[in-house]
Design a protein around this nucleic acid. Structure first.
Length: 647
RNA sequence: GCGGCUGUAGCUCAGUGGAUAGAGCGCUUCCCUCCGGAGGAAGAAGUCGGGGGUUCGAGUCCCUUCAGCCGCGCCA
């Protein structure tokens, strides 16, 4: 196509202008539009100074004159589409290619980055919930897809085990109370799983002597126990991590205090008793800069007098602020509280530095967070930007900014309040743009679980949490009632993953438990898996009849419309994967799997595979069956769903 | 107030700026001498929330408006 356009330009039929017009070849929706369509004539008609159909005619003749073996026919249709019809033999020649590639079919070399994908990362004070299940399914599949697209992928789980965390403290105290036979504190953790954790460590506690054990000891033990439960639930769900990274290890290694010193030194953090807040108008435009004084009573307009009283009485040292408003955040954030304890943001700075600076040296970080964290994007980006800013300051010495940033524009009134100087502004904005380029935060949206047509509660009144492992077990029990425990887990995992991945991660959706628990054709998971099992059955049957699958059959025998449609669908897999890797929309793989299964069923219905009196046709169709199996299994593998040979 | 998500067939939802907007469920019919019927074929069903704009062309991109769900701590 490019060649043809280029020829026409050289020969003076088309003006030079046309060279810039994009050439797009797309799949057609309707068979009468041929196999592929090209819209070039319409896109370029203005520049060419010809009407689209005229231009299309010219292109058509030129292409046909080239005598490409793939093209059988071209017609100019509609407003100016070029509809290409391909030779069936050319289409059929892809079958042996697919057979050669085998399990590599889904792979491509479109990406070449080193990517760190962090996902799930829930606190070690509770089980993986069905809400986090979406992040687990999404993160693991996205990782698979990015890897298939040619990237080196590192899967990571961040353990929020900072000893200063209030939540972890409370969790430890709750467990301690249970072990000691006392009632748990009013605001403590009360679910069954807390008792399970207590039971898990009780023996060791008793042997060490209860009175000697501190809350610290309980925190460590309770957390270990919980982590183990989380890991086993994730394993059952088909999710594995390369690294389980401990927040506390950063504190112990002194990395956090190093970062804090560096931030103070470079001026992105300080203890001035003010807090900058930005009032934003539509579109993120800064409307007003508010600098609040933080001296004396922290009284703001707080409705809760106890809370502010507590803050005042605990006051020991001035609050340390991260001036995150310099990096696009809408308010400054606390790094170190009045009582001296560090916030999670402090460790996040050190954590992100670590991710970038490890030997494996990630080019890009992807962090997958739940819907309750979307306000965290700005904060996290600011944290990384501050980290870059502090690091560049440290390297270049004091005054190191970005020399020759080229932006000599003066400070606006708003900028003056935030940055104070042109140099500071430019350096901070440069750091921010680097942070945006290298950190990508993906938020998945809320899942609502529907049972009997009504929303199922995520958290029960007795303090129990609807855990992912329970979801897997419940579905497995319904869908594989006669299976072994392992079969039930696999079935539950397959169904749950498929359902989580059916919709874009970026959109809220209802998880239909009633449908998920149906062991019938209504359930899309089984529809897809059944297609795979059916192919395997045909292949078994063929083997019994003495047929072998080879890549040297006479594939030109494949001329039926449904055979050709199936071949094209099979060949789509690597392109689907590539697209998913580009826009992270991995839900398309479930749609693809359903469509591929359907296309196979169509073929199966119209084209009998095993026919003793037509051995050549049989061998060709067996090859196509095997190719379909390769694509189906390829898609299911990426989704983390099993491809059963029998059902 | 600010931000995120959503609005497409009776229901649940697909949909790469392309031609007559597609599936599944449900509804009305039909196909088992059969390699697995957990399958297939046909039909009815739509002002793509409303209004502007961008362009050869908009469900898709931009603006605006209406409706719904969710989130905005010195918790993580």
């Amino acid at each position: 196509m490019f060649g043809v356009v280029s020829d026409l330009i050289s020969s003076g039929v088309l003006p030079e202008d046309v060279r810039g017009a994009p050439v797009e070849i797309s799949d057609t929706k309707q068979p009468e539009h041929g196999d592929f369509a090209c819209n070039f004539a319409m896109v370029a008609s203005k520049k060419a100074g010809m009407n689209p159909r005229q231009l299309g005619e010219a292109l058509r003749e030129k292409i046909l004159a080239k005598g490409d073996s793939a093209v059988r026919e071209i017609e100019v249709a509609g407003p100016g589409f070029l509809n290409f019809r391909l030779h069936p033999s050319w289409v059929a020649s892809f079958v042996p290619n697919v057979l050669d590639k085998g399990s590599d079919l889904a792979k491509s070399q479109s990406g070449s980055k080193r990517i760190n994908v962090e996902f799930v990362s829930v606190n070690p004070n509770g089980p993986i919930t069905i809400g986090s299940g979406r992040g687990a399914a999404y993160g693991s599949t996205l990782s698979n897809v990015l890897q298939a697209a040619g990237n080196v992928v590192h899967r990571e789980y961040y353990i929020n085990d900072g000893v200063n965390s209030e939540q972890m403290r409370l969790f430890a105290e709750s467990v301690k109370a249970i072990v000691e036979g006392r009632p748990v504190p009013d605001n403590g953790y009360k679910g069954d799983y807390v008792h399970a954790v207590a039971a898990d460590i009780k023996e060791e506690a008793s042997s060490l002597g209860l009175p000697s054990l501190t809350t610290d000891w309980y925190q460590q033990k309770a957390q270990d126990s919980m982590l183990q439960a989380q890991e086993s639930a994730l394993t059952a769900f088909g999710v594995a991590f390369d690294t389980w990274f401990s927040e506390q290890s950063l504190h112990e290694a002194g990395a956090v205090s190093v970062e804090i010193d560096q931030m103070i030194e470079s001026g992105v953090a300080d203890a001035n008793p003010v807090r900058t807040k930005l009032k934003l108008a539509k579109g993120g435009v800064i409307d007003e800069v508010i600098v609040e004084s933080q001296t004396g009573d922290v009284s703001e307009d707080d409705d809760d007098p106890n809370a502010s009283a507590a803050q005042v009485t605990e006051g020991g040292q001035p609050t340390l602020w991260l001036r995150s408003t310099k990096f696009g955040d809408d308010m400054d954030r606390v790094l170190r509280r009045r009582d001296g304890r560090l916030t999670y943001i402090a460790s996040d700075v050190a954590y992100h530095k670590d991710k970038f600076n490890r030997p494996e040296n990630a080019d890009k970080l992807i962090t997958i967070l739940g819907p309750d964290h979307h306000g965290y994007i700005g904060r996290l980006t600011a944290v990384v930007a501050a980290m870059f800013r502090a690091a560049s300051r440290a390297e270049q010495g004091a005054g190191g900014g970005v020399p020759g940033a080229g932006n000599a524009s003066e400070l606006s009134e708003v900028e003056a309040k935030i940055y104070g100087s042109v140099e500071e502004r430019d350096a901070c904005l440069a750091a921010l743009s680097e942070a945006k380029a290298r950190l990508e935060v993906q938020i998945y949206q809320l899942v609502r679980f529907m049972k009997d047509g009504k929303p199922a509660p995520m958290r029960k009144r007795d303090g129990n949490i609807y855990a992912l492992i329970d979801l897997i077990r419940e579905i497995g029990e319904k869908v594989a009632p006669d299976g072994t425990d392992e079969e039930k887990t696999t079935a539950g995992r397959d169904v749950a993953r498929f359902f989580y991945l059916m919709r874009s991660h970026d959109t809220t959706f209802d998880f239909d438990l009633d449908l998920a628990e149906k062991q019938s054709d209504d359930n899309p998971v089984f529809y897809v898996q059944y297609a795979h099992a059916r192919i395997c059955s045909v292949l078994r049957k063929a083997a019994e009849a003495g047929f072998e699958v080879t890549d040297s059959a006479d594939f030109e025998k494949l001329v039926h419309e449904r055979e050709l449609t199936l071949i094209k669908k099979v060949c789509d897999l690597p392109y689907e994967v590539k697209r998913c890797a580009e826009d992270y929309g991995v839900h398309r793989l479930t749609t693809y799997a359903i469509e591929l299964a359907r296309t196979y069923h169509h073929f199966y219905d119209a084209c009998r595979v095993i026919q003793a009196d037509q051995p050549e046709l049989t061998r060709a169709r067996l090859g196509l069956c095997q190719a379909t199996r390769v694509a189906l299994k390829g898609a299911l593998d990426l989704l983390g769903i099993s491809a059963p040979e029998r059902m």
